[in-house]
Design a protein around this nucleic acid. Structure first.
Length: 343
DNA sequence: TATCCACCGGAAAAGGAGGACT
DNA sequence: AGTCCTCCTTTTCCGGTGGATA
């Protein structure tokens, strides 16, 4: 019978929002001022994956007083204007919205719902919507009638400036207040892990050097919490540095699985084929990725998608920061992307 | 200096699903 | 039941791209 060293799993789960944030007081204050009902600023939050953007926004939005209504939209799943509007409307009316409407009909219905109350709309992972469907939704939201009562919070994990991703008219109409989140320092990262471990694990089940090892290996708290959870489920006595080293690959795999969950089987196959290639060679070009993906599909007996489609999927893996891509336009290697596995 | 490489990425079209109306 | 909407996913098509090569 194996004993379980986890006393409470929640603090190790990705969706867990801590009641107290470490080293984010200033940002919290800024957000609180910007989102309050006396303010009407649109906000653009930016920072690497795992820096607490989503959680901070959630906790601030929850603290808003009763006469403010809020919508949270994850643009990974709601990656078109239509899907996002539908979800916004669903949140505002608490009713199931049937499909078949014209986009402009949904826009009109949203306007009706936002007229009376101050509304905050959070668009998380905004890059996915922008890349897939352009900035029509943002433009619409910025120009909505009585726009003083509708505010947007856009959240992005890429370092590219929002201004470069949207049209000028959208930017000048939106005028988003930029809030930049810096990555945690090694010490802050360690403290986060330590606090979560205290809440989640039974006493005397974690060695300090195990945490140190995790915190010094990755700077992404989302990954390291998954790592800690994996290590905790894999041992029934004490988490040591060895436990942690042995569970690294498993934890990374779990982290990727969680990230890819909203996507299709083809995204996973594509990621796997890049993993396989990167074991053999340092630089990978798109052509070889397409080939490897095709072969993987054949062994799995799955109909492969076209290269054009896979090209878009590659872009999404890049937005998830699972891969890094360098774009070469022309040259002796042709017009291609040089791809690298991240972390 | 013309051509080639080999993929990029926009645009259009095909095919499909969910729903309303007659 | 048939037709006409809507949007979504995917494929097909095709004009770039710019250094290397003949």
């Amino acid at each position: 019978m194996s004993r379980n060293i986890i006393s409470q799993i929640e603090p190790l789960q990705p969706e867990y929002v801590p009641s107290k944030f470490i080293e984010r007081n200033k940002i919290q204050e800024t957000l609180s001022n910007l989102l309050g009902k006396d303010s009407s600023r649109n906000v653009h939050l930016e920072g690497p994956r795992g820096t607490g953007k989503t959680h901070l926004t959630h906790s601030q939005v929850n603290q808003l007083s009763g006469d403010v209504q809020t919508c949270y939209i994850n643009c990974i799943t709601a990656d078109t204007q239509y899907k996002a509007l539908k979800q916004i409307l669903q949140t505002l009316t608490q009713e199931k919205i049937r499909s078949g409407y014209h986009t402009s009909t949904l826009q009109r219905k949203v306007e009706q719902q936002t007229g009376a109350l101050h509304t905050v709309i959070v668009l998380d992972e905004i890059d996915f919507l922008l890349h897939n469907d352009g900035d029509d939704l943002l433009y619409y939201l910025s120009r909505i009638k009585n726009s003083t009562s509708v505010n947007t919070v856009t959240i992005s994990s890429t370092s590219t400036n929002l201004k470069q991703q949207i049209e000028e008219r959208t930017h000048s109409s939106l005028q988003p207040y930029p809030v930049q989140l810096e990555p945690y320092t090694g010490e802050q990262h360690y403290n986060i892990l330590h606090t979560r471990a205290q809440h989640a694990l039974k006493p005397q089940t974690l060695q300090q050097n195990a945490l140190t090892y995790i915190a010094s290996t990755t700077s992404n708290p989302a990954l390291s919490l998954q790592w800690l959870k994996t290590a905790a489920t894999e041992t029934d006595t004490v988490i040591t540095e060895t436990t942690v080293k042995n569970t690294e690959n498993q934890a990374r795999q779990k982290y990727v699985e969680h990230l890819l969950q909203p996507f299709t089987q083809h995204h996973s196959l594509l990621y796997t084929s890049i993993q396989q290639l990167s074991e053999k060679q340092d630089t990978i070009h798109t052509g070889t990725v397409y080939k490897q993906y095709g072969e993987l599909c054949e062994t799995e007996d799955i109909e492969p998608l076209s290269n054009r489609r896979i090209s878009d999927h590659l872009k999404q893996l890049e937005l998830l920061q699972l891969i890094a891509a360098q774009y070469h336009y022309g040259g002796n290697t042709g017009k291609t992307r040089k791809i690298q596995l991240k972390q």
